[in-house]
């Protein structure tokens, strides 16, 4: 009997083996090597922390990192504020949901590149539709170069952020019982007050999860900063890529990649921790 059990455990272990093996070889080992190499001098191979010291001591890197974080945080907040009412309406009005769901789902199934093309068609200085309309109306006398400055990138990020936030938040808000709001209203609260005092606190876990998602995806996004020509602001992913590919400083790039992943994973981990710690009684004050 005991032997049979052991054989069964062995069989179960065997079933999980391919999954563990693939992930170890394709994710764990490369990531470990990346970390290991970031701690080694590129030429002599001697262990050193020089690339981390160089990164943290480099004003340009720190400024880029700060810009990236500020951009990601600003976009996350803007996307959440803009998407929250829409998500709420979607969660409560089935008819509206059936109309809008395809509109917010299809952009999520498009590569960022397609969104980038659309942004160029909208905002490009000469051919872009926004500039031509504004100039046609006489509001602008010469084309505005929004695309090749930070607003162009911010607009593109806010677009994808809204799409993600609407999808995630409408799912979360659907699980908030509408009778709780009705109870608040029947006791004299206005609909708006019920929304802020009852609904939003109950949806906090979803809001935290959505913001961590949007934040991390912006911090490490590469396609949009390059397509919308990110010389200003220089996002940190561009810096890493140019260190790796053009400047031939791979080990410096590895160290910076480690710094960025620690940031991204830290934000995700923090959101998970908050959810576990406070998610159970979130809002029930």
């Amino acid at each position: 009997m005991r032997r049979r059990l052991r054989r069964e455990v062995l069989f179960f272990r065997l079933c999980t083996l391919p999954a563990v093996l693939v992930t170890t070889l394709v994710a764990l080992v490369p990531l470990g090597l990346l970390f290991f190499n970031s701690l080694k001098n590129q030429h002599s191979g001697a262990p050193s922390l020089e690339y981390y010291i160089a990164s943290f001591g480099n004003a340009f890197f720190m400024r880029t990192l700060a810009t990236t974080i500020m951009m990601a945080a600003g976009v996350t907040i803007a996307a959440l504020v803009l998407a929250l009412p829409l998500a709420y309406l979607l969660a409560r009005r089935t008819a509206l949901r059936n109309v809008i769901m395809p509109i917010i789902t299809i952009p999520r199934m498009l590569p960022f590149v397609v969104i980038g093309y659309a942004m160029i068609l909208l905002l490009a200085p000469m051919t872009g539709i926004a500039n031509r309309v504004l100039m046609g109306l006489g509001i602008l006398s010469q084309p505005a170069f929004i695309l090749f400055d930070w607003p162009g990138q911010a607009i593109a990020f806010v677009y994808t952020g809204i799409v993600v936030a609407t999808a995630v938040l409408s799912g979360v808000l659907m699980s908030v019982d509408p009778q709780l709001e009705d109870a608040a209203i029947s006791m004299g609260a206005t609909r708006l007050r019920a929304f802020f005092v009852v609904t939003i606190p109950l949806a906090i876990p979803g809001i935290i999860a959505a913001s961590a998602l949007i934040f991390t995806s912006i911090v490490t996004s590469y396609a949009i900063p390059v397509m919308l020509n990110g010389r200003v602001p220089y996002m940190v992913s561009l810096l890493i890529a140019s260190n790796l590919l053009t400047l031939q400083q791979p080990h410096l790039a590895y160290a910076q990649a480690v710094i960025v992943s620690v940031l991204a994973i830290g934000v995700t981990g923090l959101s998970q921790y908050i959810l576990l710690r406070y998610g159970q009684n979130g809002g029930r004050k």
């Binding site: 394709v26 994710a27 490369p30 990531l31 090597l33 990346l34 991390t216 911090v219 490490t220 996004s221 590469y222 992913s237 890493i240 790796l244 790039a253 590895y254 990649a257 480690v258 960025v260 992943s261 991204a264 994973i265 995700t268």
Partner: peptide, 11 residues
């Protein structure tokens, strides 16, 4: 969980 860009560089 790891950002895709970083995993890409590692790969």
């Amino acid at each position: 969980v790891v950002p895709q860009l970083i995993l890409g560089i590692a790969l």
